[in-house]
């Protein structure tokens, strides 16, 4: 177990180094100029060149890369051109929203996707299975921006039950109650992901339920619900856990449409905005953090296999 973990950590470091080159190269290959965006439409070429020099963006790309990697290794992700703030603090501020949004979304996904997936698998072929599977398909097909739009209209503009947009930090006035700002966006994001987990749970349980050991358990007279929970569900969880891990990571980095629609200060929106403004240090910093997050999730998912199923050998 420990040697496996060490080997994986080494591989992760190599992947990270390769990712840093790719991140830096791709970002600087995009055409466009942060200085023009910063100074506005009427800036003269002289002004642009002067600011470019001040920010060090006129240096050769290899010099810029070396300076960036050197700073990152010392724990300094750099300074945002636009926000005039250290990138770590910008990311931390946005990470709070993204982590809370992803967590709340996963709660809905777990509460909706897994139980209904179990029910549909157990009632395989029944009208209930057909109906709920059809509903899942519908939820997976409807664009999230459409769901979000109607969520805002109905629950914020018409009923006035929940805020339409924005998210004050939990550290701000309101504290935990500020989580209400995330209810509509998290339900919006949960809709397609719950459908995915539902179908995955259903398919995985159906596969496992056809295994010999399940038949044996039933033949031994074990109660049906116990067979489902102890023998089928636990073994079906492997695939579901993998999907959970990557869905969570994806929600942190890719929820940009929902974050934009609900004006949430999340990581996805920060990335897109930084790309549009060509705020290179922020893009590099955020993408690097996201890569680390994916690698970490991948690592944890692999380790969790062993915990879920002792038969799995980690090599």
């Amino acid at each position: 177990m420990w040697s496996y973990a060490l080997r994986r950590a080494g591989a992760t470091a190599v992947t990270l180094a390769a990712a840093s080159v790719i991140i830096f190269a791709f970002i600087h290959l995009i055409p466009g100029d942060p200085i023009y965006v910063m100074l506005g439409d009427s800036a003269t070429p002289d002004q642009v060149e002067t600011v470019r020099h001040t920010l060090g963006l006129d240096q050769p790309i290899l010099v810029q890369y070396a300076a960036w990697v050197g700073a990152v290794l010392q724990g300094n992700l750099g300074h945002s051109i636009f926000y005039d703030a250290p990138i770590l603090s910008v990311i931390a501020d946005h990470a709070e929203t993204s982590i809370l949004l992803a967590s709340l979304t996963m709660v809905w996904v777990l509460l909706i996707g897994v139980p209904i997936g179990m029910v549909t698998a157990m009632r395989h072929g029944s009208w209930l299975d057909q109906g709920l599977s059809g509903l899942a398909m519908l939820l997976a097909s409807v664009p999230t921006f459409w769901v979000g739009l109607y969520m805002i209209l109905i629950f914020a503009a018409w009923l006035g039950w929940l805020p339409s947009s924005g998210f004050p930090s939990l550290l701000d006035e309101g504290g935990l109650a500020n989580l209400r700002y995330l209810i509509l966006p998290s339900i919006t994001l949960a809709a397609p992901n719950a459908a995915l987990i539902l179908r995955l749970t259903r398919a995985s349980m159906l596969d496992v339920s056809r295994e010999d050991y399940v038949r044996t358990a039933r033949a031994k007279g074990i109660r049906p619900w116990r067979v489902v929970t102890r023998h089928i569900f636990r073994n079906a969880l492997l695939a579901v856990v993998s999907a959970f891990g990557f869905t969570f990571a994806a929600l942190i980095s890719e929820a940009v449409v929902t974050e934009t629609e609900f004006a949430l200060p999340g990581i996805g929106r920060l990335v897109v905005q930084s790309i549009l403004q060509r705020d290179y240090p922020v893009i590099q910093g955020v993408v690097l953090v996201i890569v680390v997050l994916y690698l970490l999730v991948n690592f944890l998912v692999d380790i969790s296999y062993r915990l879920l199923d002792p038969r799995v050998e980690l090599q």
């Binding site: 055409p31 942060p34 023009y36 439409d41 549009l276 403004q277």
Partner: peptide, 8 residues
């Protein structure tokens, strides 16, 4: 193109 590219 996007606006930043157009400006450049």
């Amino acid at each position: 193109v996007d606006w930043a590219t157009l400006l450049k």
